[in-house]
């Protein structure tokens, strides 16, 4: 009897499956609390970079290194990956689990493409004489942009783990908040990148 009931139990799709349970609401709120803290973390790295960016010693400076075309491509990749994760959430609310998975995989692919460009970029700079301890500018630059890159890497691994673990489960009240917070994290990475391309790259070339 009890088994039959368990078999027949079905959940109907709520309008916001990520916030339908107390656990989901707590995850959502707690994650924003974490993002508030991340803002301060990146704030201190930006402050350090802005304070130290003219300390280039004998090494290459921002204007010698940065290329607008590469940064533009990276920006467009990350911006598009933000849009694909928006599509994923819209598909989740429609109850289209397959759509959610496909758009999340697209987000992961774009994130990996971004990382490849960033590794290429750092490799190039290293071969142009910008080691981590070459100058104050070099250390501040690698720490700021590298911390952002580490966030992208973590986001890629996080979303991939979710996608593999829940590849067959269908949308549930357990995994909806997990996908939703991962998407919030991904948008936050894009928010930080907006400041990086403006403050580090554009000001480095034009200011």
């Amino acid at each position: 009897m009890a088994e039959n009931e368990a078999m027949e139990q079905q959940q109907t799709l709520p309008p916001n499956p990520e916030k339908a349970t107390l656990e989901g609401r707590n995850k959502y709120l707690g994650f924003w609390f974490f993002l508030g803290g991340e803002t301060v973390l990146f704030g201190s790295l930006f402050g350090t970079y802005l304070g130290l960016r003219s300390g280039v010693l004998d090494g290459p400076g921002p204007a010698d290194l940065f290329h607008l075309d590469l940064v533009f491509i990276m920006t467009m990749i990350l911006l598009t990956s933000s849009l694909t994760s928006v599509f994923a959430v819209i598909n989740m609310k429609r109850g289209n689990y397959k759509g959610l998975l496909i758009w999340m995989w697209a987000t992961v692919a774009l994130g990996v493409a971004f990382l490849v460009f960033e590794i290429y970029e750092f490799y190039e700079y290293y071969h142009q004489g910008l080691g981590f301890s070459t100058s104050a500018f070099a250390s501040a630059f690698y720490t700021l942009v590298g911390t952002h890159g580490a966030h992208v890497l973590f986001g890629v691994l996080w979303i991939t783990t979710l996608l593999i673990r829940y590849r067959k489960s269908g949308l549930t009240l357990t995994n909806a908040p997990k996908f939703y917070t991962a998407v919030l994290y991904w948008h936050f990475i894009d928010v930080v990148w907006v400041f990086i391309f403006t403050v580090v790259y554009l000001l480095g070339i034009g200011g």
Partner: peptide
């Protein structure tokens, strides 16, 4: 509402941090 409070307080402290670090490190050293 809470989300807005958290992010805006984070941004508020971040702005102060950026300004303070820029002035403290930047002006003194370079």
């Amino acid at each position: 509402a809470w989300v807005n409070i958290m992010i805006w307080s984070g941004l508020f402290i971040a702005v102060l941090t950026v300004a303070a670090l820029m002035l403290l490190i930047g002006v003194v050293k370079y």
